[in-house]
């Protein structure tokens, strides 16, 4: 039996009919075309599918779509656009933190959750916040630098 669910995605309420075995990741990518969120390991190890679920980063491959009913989800498409990038997206570009790009959406979402809660994280806090996101180009150093720099940029723009 399919379930009709309502999810607030990137600020806009959407409805969908989903089978119980559909994951939130499949719903986002295949029904709603939000392909910024990536399917990597499909078992919660790689973090490529990270989205914000009620403001907290989760692996969308491990969330049943039915469980998103009534909840708020933010994907990388909700961060910014090419014309108006989020400070994190600008920092990733400036610091060369994107190589093949496959991990970048998940990295950006995990970093956004960190900076929302802690605008001035230490390097250790950044590394812990990104520990669930694997980059197989191993470009971690530049990613950590980009997050640090975005935190500073976001703080100075608030002043």
């Amino acid at each position: 039996m399919a379930f009709t669910i309502k999810v607030k995605v990137n600020g806009e309420w959407k409805t969908a009919d989903v089978e119980p075995e559909m994951t939130l990741l499949e719903l986002l990518r295949e029904q709603w075309g939000l392909t910024g969120t990536k399917l990597g390991c499909d078992e919660g190890d790689c973090g490529a599918c990270t989205v914000l679920f009620d403001g907290k980063p989760v692996n969308s491959c491990l969330v049943l779509a039915v469980r998103a009913d009534g909840h708020e989800v933010v994907t990388v498409e909700g961060l910014g656009t090419a014309e108006r990038p989020h400070p994190l997206q600008s920092a990733f570009e400036q610091h060369g933190a994107v190589q093949c790009g496959f991990c970048a959406p998940g990295m950006l979402i995990s970093a956004k959750a960190l900076l929302d809660a802690n605008p001035e994280p230490t390097e250790q806090e950044i590394r812990e916040a990104l520990a669930g996101n694997l980059c197989r180009c191993t470009g971690y150093t530049k990613i950590v630098e980009a997050v640090k720099s975005a935190g500073r940029a976001m703080k100075s723009s608030v002043k």
Partner: peptide, 9 residues
């Protein structure tokens, strides 16, 4: 346990 994403679930 796990990482941030799995600890949130």
């Amino acid at each position: 346990v796990g990482a941030v994403q799995t600890r949130n679930l």
